[in-house]
């Protein structure tokens, strides 16, 4: 029996509040592959790497460092389920290691709540933990119903990979982590022109995010993708709810199911769509379930 991995999940805000189906899928899929999730009390918003950081970087660093302290005190490493949380926590970790003066300044503020950041805690996005600590083979071994024949259009999102100097996860131009994880559950990761394009959620503009997501859908459609696979709740919002907005503003319906990686893993582990909360998505996944229940017949020459 392979060793169990103990980590503390940092759920962030978007997942537990807006998309609890993602939390459910993580809780359901991790136990069978040997990951023990130890929930700790006291985490707050990471805080978000876009608006809050834009308001005051020192305040952003301080709140994030406090979150890191909680895991550090418990002697547990953090796994993140959201690319935004991953970005904040890893960048703060990097900046406080790079700049002693900044670290002193932040620790001065942390002292007010009886905390001190030492810099010992590690932070990994759940997909990185699966690749590096668990190993792709253990993910593969948990599959009971491979998603054979399903073409998945990967959307990496920005904050898992960039900047690679800080994230250190994969090549930012030629990543492979999600392709490998999707292959592990029997599906077929399809490459498409706009695989690495930003979803646009981080800019303050009415048109740009819609134009950007539209390009991504068009690129996936051209590649004959059956569903979209991603790992970030903010990107999910851009693409699931986003399709409703695109249909209204651009009069174009893509009807592309958007699935969070752990939900996909759950289906492959034999869970029903409701057991990983897929019934909560705006864009229905019936087409995918039909493909899973009736795998394409392979013609064998007699």
């Amino acid at each position: 029996m392979a060793e169990k991995i103990r980590v503390t999940p940092f759920w962030g805000c978007m997942i537990p509040v807006k998309y609890p189906q993602m939390e459910l899928s993580v809780r359901k899929t991790m136990e069978p592959i040997g990951v023990e999730l130890v929930d700790l009390e006291g985490f707050t918003c990471c805080p978000d790497p876009i608006y809050f950081k834009a308001r005051d970087k020192i305040e952003w660093l301080t709140i994030a460092a406090r979150n890191l302290c909680i895991a550090e005190e418990a002697g547990l490493d953090i796994i993140t389920m959201c690319s935004g949380c991953t970005s904040t926590l890893l960048e703060v970790r990097f900046l406080l290691a790079e700049d002693q003066e900044l670290k002193d300044k932040v620790n001065e503020k942390l002292k007010k709540v009886g905390k001190e950041y030492k810099g010992k805690v590690k932070v990994k996005h759940i997909v990185v933990m699966m690749r590096d600590d668990l190993g792709i083979e253990r993910v593969k071994a948990s599959v009971k119903r491979p998603l054979t024949g399903i073409n998945v259009g990967i959307h990496y999102g920005c904050h898992l990979l960039k900047p690679s100097q800080i994230m250190g996860i994969d090549d930012a131009d030629y990543p492979s982590i999600l392709e490998n994880l999707i292959q592990a559950i029997g599906a077929n990761p399809l490459t498409h022109t706009e695989k690495l394009l930003c979803c646009g959620k981080g800019c303050i503009d009415d048109e740009m995010p819609i134009d950007m997501t539209y390009e991504i859908f068009a690129s996936m459609e051209e590649a004959n993708v059956d569903c979209m696979g991603l790992i970030c709740p903010t990107c999910f919002n851009s693409f699931d709810m986003g399709q409703i907005i695109i249909a209204r503003k651009k009069e174009r319906e893509f009807k592309m199911p958007v699935i969070y990686y752990c939900q996909m893993l759950g289906l492959a582990q034999g869970l029903k769509p409701e057991e990983v909360g897929l019934h909560m998505h705006r864009i229905k996944i019936d087409k995918i379930m039909e493909m899973i229940s009736k795998p394409k017949k392979v013609n064998v020459a007699v």
Partner: peptide, 21 residues
């Protein structure tokens, strides 16, 4: 500061979360 940024950040300072429960 644009209002969107200010409001969003204020939610975090006041509730500890970016989305209200």
């Amino acid at each position: 500061l644009p209002e969107t940024v200010d409001k969003f950040s204020e939610t975090i300072s006041q509730t500890g979360r970016s989305v209200v429960v």
